[in-house]
């Protein structure tokens, strides 16, 4: 365990050296949140029953997850593989799986940190209080994170080259970031578009989190089953199709 932590510390340091992590995972959600809240914070977001403050806090708390799952994780793993680093790790008593575990943990920590920064800003500067149970919210947030990460891991396993991985991550990342309601509030889209957003994996997670944040726990069974199924299916594919080189 101590050896794992030693490796983790190095990997986490490397993580924070990459400017896009800081920009996309940590700064971007905060900036979008401040802008939306200053413009329309107290207004109701369409007929959702949430104010824009409440709605965008929840939505933006998933941006860190989105960045980690659809950018950091696949990019890191495909790079480790194409540069032969996993191959080199294979020639050591420790399995390359440890390096992967470290990187997934790093991504999780960055996603959590992104949400933490957002939460501090929302609570301290904008007086946000969550009507629902914070612990349930946290549990659902973690479920959303795990299921999105499993999609990212599947992409990393299926994409053999950096090129195909770049295409796949762009196809996942930008639509989810922009159209699932994570950054642009889903409430501003027309109804037909919203129903498309609702079936995007991240959209499912965001809607679930919105319900939970408002203390509505009666409609959470279906999304929880969907996210669990995504985790199991994508996780299995990721493990089954994984290659060290």
């Amino acid at each position: 365990m101590r050896r794992f932590l030693r490796m983790y510390r190095v990997e986490q340091k490397i993580f924070f050296r990459s400017p896009d992590v800081i920009l996309f995972c940590l700064a971007m959600p905060l900036v979008v949140f401040v802008v939306i809240t200053m413009i329309t914070g107290s207004k109701n977001a369409a007929d959702s029953g949430l104010t824009y403050l409440q709605s965008s806090y929840v939505a933006l708390s998933t941006v860190g997850i989105c960045c980690s799952a659809f950018m950091s994780i696949p990019i890191t793993i495909v790079e480790l593989r194409s540069q032969g680093i996993l191959r080199r790790m294979y020639c050591s008593p420790c399995s390359p799986a440890r390096l992967l575990a470290c990187d997934i943990l790093c991504s999780g920590v960055v996603a959590a940190l992104s949400t933490l920064i957002l939460t501090v800003a929302a609570v301290a500067a904008f007086g946000y209080r969550m009507p629902g149970n914070v612990l349930v919210y946290l549990a659902m947030w973690l479920l959303t994170m795990v299921s999105m990460f499993s999609i990212g891991l599947m992409v990393a396993s299926l994409c053999r080259t950096t090129k195909s991985m770049n295409v796949a991550t762009s196809l996942l990342y930008f639509p989810m970031l922009l159209f699932s309601g994570a950054t642009i509030p889903a409430e501003v889209f027309p109804a037909w578009f919203q129903s498309a957003a609702n079936v995007m994996p991240l959209g499912v997670g965001i809607n679930l989190l919105k319900s939970v944040s408002m203390g509505c726990y009666d409609k959470i069974t279906v999304p929880v089953i969907m996210l669990t199924a995504i985790t199991l299916i994508c996780g299995t594919i990721a493990v089954k199709t994984f290659r060290w080189e």
Binding site: R3, M7, V10, K13, I14, E79, I85, M89, S92, P93
Partner: peptide, 29 residues
């Protein structure tokens, strides 16, 4: 591999890892 060390041809390293960090990382294995 507990008893065998390896230097492969053209091994690359993670971008933005320092010499010392690479040593710490490999020593941790």
């Amino acid at each position: 591999f507990e008893r065998v060390g390896v230097q492969l041809q053209n091994t690359q390293y993670q971008s933005s890892i320092t010499v010392e960090e690479a040593c710490i990382e490999y020593a941790s294995l």
